[in-house]
């Protein structure tokens, strides 16, 4: 059975979608980029970061968790939304410890890349300087909690893709942290470097040991093209 298809409108552009697609999935396919951070195309959406918030039929909703529907009218690329998204990215920068110049993920980091794309110069909000520890107990992976942005990608990947439940949240509110399924740290869990959960981190919180700096700074993913360019290229190709 072929799923029913329908159309909606985003920033004046008609987009075709099929039943069961989220707004972000339909827009990705159509080559329209909605900035996002916690969303990962191979994982169920969770709506943690709120960066993909759009004005959908007049209401603010996260595009990753909103099912596409016929006739929707969506605002995405507006000065107000860009400013709100930038503020959310700033919040994540000041909540953790993110020293881009010497971070192992610099140039490959989705948080940093979104900061650039959304026009963040330096955070205007006060740094929180949390004290968090590195977990280096695993032979092949280390967890740098300073970088964690609580996007839940690893939690979802470990539970849904790896069938392991290595990760979870602990605490609530500003005290919420990423936790692992063993008191002695990641090294005591079932985690393996080939797990999906090891490859979905958007920042440098889950890092594979001995694999870093193989691509030099300046030649990494987002050093060449801004984040979202791959999605936007689909539309450019179609138009030309």
């Amino acid at each position: 059975m072929v799923a029913a298809s329908f159309k909606f409108n985003i920033d004046g552009i008609e987009v075709e979608a099929t039943e069961g697609q989220s707004v972000i999935e339909a827009c990705d396919e159509a080559g329209i980029y909605i900035p996002r951070l916690c969303h990962h195309p191979e994982l169920p959406p969770s709506g943690n970061c709120r960066v993909c918030t759009c004005k959908i039929n007049g209401r603010h909703s996260a595009a990753c968790v909103t099912p596409a529907a016929h006739g929707m009218v969506i605002e995405n690329d507006t000065p107000q939304l860009t400013s709100d998204r930038r503020a959310v990215i700033e919040m994540l920068f000041v909540e953790g410890n993110h020293p881009c110049p010497y971070c192992v993920a610099s140039g490959d980091c989705e948080l940093q890349a979104l900061g650039y794309r959304l026009g963040m110069v330096a955070p205007t909000q006060p740094y929180q300087w949390p004290e968090r520890k590195i977990d280096a107990t695993h032979p092949d992976i280390y967890l740098d909690h300073d970088r964690c942005i609580l996007c839940s990608r690893c939690i979802r990947a470990s539970r849904m893709e790896d069938g392991k439940t290595v990760f979870g949240f602990e605490g609530r509110g500003i005290a919420m942290r990423l936790n692992v399924d063993a008191q002695g740290g990641l090294g005591e869990t079932q985690m393996a470097a080939i797990d999906k959960a090891a490859s979905v981190c958007p920042v440098a919180c889950i890092v594979i040991k001995r694999h870093n700096y193989q691509v030099p700074n300046g030649s990494r993913r987002f050093d060449k093209t801004p984040i979202g360019s791959d999605i936007e290229a689909k539309r450019t190709r179609r138009q030309s």
């Binding site: 960066v51 919040m91 909000q125 929180q128 605490g171 919420m176």
Partner: peptide, 21 residues
């Protein structure tokens, strides 16, 4: 609100603390 934010989403988790400050 800082104490009662659930922490799931960024704006509330971090924003409530920034507002308090």
């Amino acid at each position: 609100f800082v104490e009662e934010s659930c922490g799931w989403c960024t704006p509330c988790r971090v924003g409530t603390t920034l507002l308090k400050q």
